[in-house]
């Protein structure tokens, strides 16, 4: 990848539609840079040799066969799915409440609240991980379990819901609220009848993203995991060992699932915007 090609040069101040060739070329190279590793993983998942050397000598579906027979992987997939659903659900509740309060009320300290909610995702994951580890086991004397993972995930997923829902709320005309209030509806009724249906797609889109983030997370999970392993932890354990070609196959499946989820989230966001 030639990074030097992508160094910014003067931006021509022309009207939209004038496309300097170098800009398009740089963008295409950037796309290649972004996707090269994903393509490599998919390619090697069909490689017949165990060592990932180039060029690929021979193709096989063995790793997929191995993958689908690997009970440990499927246990981990089920476990990660459970964690993702519970963590995303908690994040939905926490995030929607926060976004609604931030959008509909006037009070001091909003930037501080935004900052606090966003901290777990802005600060390095390792900080969240070890802080919760020390808190749960060192301070509270609890055992690590699925619940410690869920709490960690819900904590850093909340901001996704807040952002998604707040963005949608800010697009909604206040006049809707006012009209509803004029007609004698309580704030709760207004929320139930007017606001919630309008932000529902944004909540779903955020929840899908939160699930995806939780499903792939390793940095925080590493410190909070108990007896059961999430999929990324299982993969990490095998990657550390080196030779594990079935991981390329597992990774390909993960990429496909993530793609479907992101597309779904995108679809919900669009639905939210055109509603």
């Amino acid at each position: 990848m030639n990074i030097a090609n992508a160094i910014p040069e003067p931006m021509p101040a022309g009207p939209k539609g004038r496309k300097p060739v170098w800009l398009t070329v740089a963008s295409i190279i950037t796309f290649l840079f972004l996707y090269l590793p994903l393509v490599v993983v998919v390619l090697y998942s069909f490689s017949a040799t165990k060592v990932n050397a180039w060029p690929i000598k021979g193709y096989t579906l063995d790793w997929y066969r191995e993958l689908f027979q690997d009970e440990d992987i499927w246990d981990a997939v089920r476990f990660s799915t459970f964690i993702g659903i519970v963590a995303a659900s908690i994040a939905v509740v926490l995030g929607t409440l926060t976004a609604y309060a931030l959008d509909r009320y006037r009070f001091r300290g909003k930037p501080l609240i935004r900052f606090a909610i966003g901290m777990p995702i802005v600060l390095p994951g390792i900080v969240t991980g070890v802080a919760l580890l020390a808190f749960f086991t060192g301070v509270l004397g609890l055992n690590l379990s699925r619940w410690t993972i869920i709490i960690g995930h819900a904590t850093f997923c909340t901001v996704l819901i807040v952002n998604n829902v707040a963005a949608r709320l800010s697009q909604l005309p206040r006049s809707l609220d006012e009209a509803s209030a004029d007609l004698g509806a309580t704030p709760l009724t207004t929320f139930r009848r007017i606001t919630f249906p309008l932000i529902r797609p944004a909540i779903v889109a955020g929840a899908i993203l939160a699930f995806t983030l939780s499903f792939d997370e390793i940095v925080v999970t590493f410190f909070l995991t108990g007896r059961e392993k999430t999929l990324p932890l299982l993969i990490w354990g095998r990657l550390r060992r080196g030779i594990s070609p079935e991981i390329n196959a597992a990774a390909t499946v993960i990429i496909l699932v993530s793609l479907v989820l992101v597309l779904a989230s995108y679809w919900f966001t669009r639905k939210s915007e055109t509603n």
Partner: peptide
Amino acid sequence: MAKFFAAIGLTSALGPTLARSGVS
């Protein structure tokens, strides 16, 4: 609504406690 949110809060709070009883 209050009950609904309280229930969620309670579940979250109880989570770690439940976990102690051993999930494996």
